[in-house]
Design a protein around this nucleic acid. Structure first.
Lengths: 237, 237
DNA sequence: ATAGTGCTTTAGGCTAGCCTAAATGTCAAG
DNA sequence: CTTGACATTTAGGCTAGCCTAAAGCACTAT
């Protein structure tokens, strides 16, 4: 019986992500290939193997979906990933746009005992620094609520709940604007034809592209009760 | 040109350790095999590959020794390992006898940037929680000074500087005795014929086997100025 | 010297994961 | 219902690392 290698974990996580964000059931093999940057034939091969391990359902030309076992493992990796992200961000001061890449490697290297210690050291957090929910150890995950910032009507105010971690460069830009989870924003103006959206973030204002605003989730009324803990950057040297 | 894989890092670290602790120049292939738990033929194969990468010197039947390049990489891994150990111990409260195994996996997963952040977060430490010196980024390492506790004369007092991390079970026992770096000990009595050594550790006394005492290094007069920071175990639940 | 003993190396094989090229299935549009 | 476009799978190959079995070297003791 084959074991859960790093590669297996990567596949399961990718499949989970893809089915999670599209909401769809079946995930096409090609999408997995693109997401992981691996050739389609390689993915077919691995998928057949994972089917043999009963980690996913698969029919030729029919796409894949995770079994409960597969989903459990996927969520475990997601939990590891997000715990590490939070740790890197709040404790080591790793810049937000870099935590994803670092956590990508660390997520595979976290024993069960250490997972507990890490979680506890962080105060058993519910969200990672991007605002994404951290699955519980049992494999339950809070639903992401909120609407894209791009959908917010002019004049409306809201609180950022989550910023997408997909594109490091865009993320860095958002950070530079102060567009972070827990921050209060309001829409001042929206140009027609998907033109720029003018925002007030804190006390400053700026205009951003709606494509960028798509990546930001906001929650209507919620006050910024508890932002993800700020990093304590060491100031020495 | 082959790349520095995890396996390569493990080999270099093993060779460095073996040549470092024997003080000898050439390391026999068989020793590497035993140390890594890998068959001798596999080691021969890898060693030939590493020679091709100019990371070590090797002649058939003649053992191996690291080139400067190889040593640089080995020390980098050792640095990673010891930084992680200290981090796990002082920040996450991982038990001392477990940090080695955990760090074994983490050491391969530490980017250059993160190494700096980690080191800084720890206050650019010089020692790991066992008392072993942490190599500098440039690849320089302080020499371990001190004598084995087993060599200490009755009546003499000293400070523990380092306890071996080789055997997790023995390490756990030492921890339970309070035999930790920075702790003051004195020899009350030594039974003849390598019999048990009776010690005073702090305010309590105990008798230990000289084989165990071999694993503890002590420094004659040094006062316990700064022990490796104690773990702050969370007390919740 | 020479045989034995014990490393060490060669030879040959295996698995995991990846690749490219070529074949095959699916589906929509004519 | 046929064809083209495109996704997917099969076939065949590669590298990294590991293994076992058998051959080869070196050193010691007769």
């Amino acid at each position: 019986m084959p074991s859960i290698t790093h590669a297996v974990e990567d596949y399961l996580k990718a499949i989970w992500k893809l089915s999670h964000q599209t909401g769809g059931e079946k995930v096409p093999v090609g999408d997995i290939a693109i997401h992981l940057g691996i050739s389609a034939p390689s993915v077919t091969g691995m998928v057949q193997k994972l089917k043999g391990m009963r980690l996913l359902h698969y029919t030729r030309y029919g796409g894949v979906s995770l079994t409960p076992r597969g989903r459990k493992i996927a969520l475990e990796i997601v939990r590891h990933h997000r715990l590490w992200e939070l740790y890197l961000y709040t404790r080591l001061g790793v810049p937000l746009e870099r935590v994803d890449k670092e956590a990508e490697r660390l997520e595979h290297v976290l024993s069960d005992d250490m997972e507990d210690l890490l979680s506890r050291a962080l105060g058993d957090p519910k969200r990672d620094p991007h605002g994404d929910p951290i699955p519980t150890k049992a494999g339950a995950m809070e639903r992401l609520k909120g609407i894209p910032l791009s959908r917010l009507k002019p004049g409306a105010a809201a609180t950022v709940t989550r910023i997408s971690d997909r594109h490091a460069d865009k993320l860095r830009y958002m950070v530079s604007l102060g567009l972070l989870p827990g921050v209060r924003v309001s829409v001042i103006e929206r140009a027609p034809f998907r033109g720029p959206i003018t925002l007030k973030i804190g006390n400053s204002r700026c205009a951003i592209d709606p494509d960028l605003a798509d990546l930001v989730l906001v929650s209507a009324g919620a006050p910024p009760r508890r932002a993800a803990a700020a990093p304590r950057r060491s100031r020495r040297k």
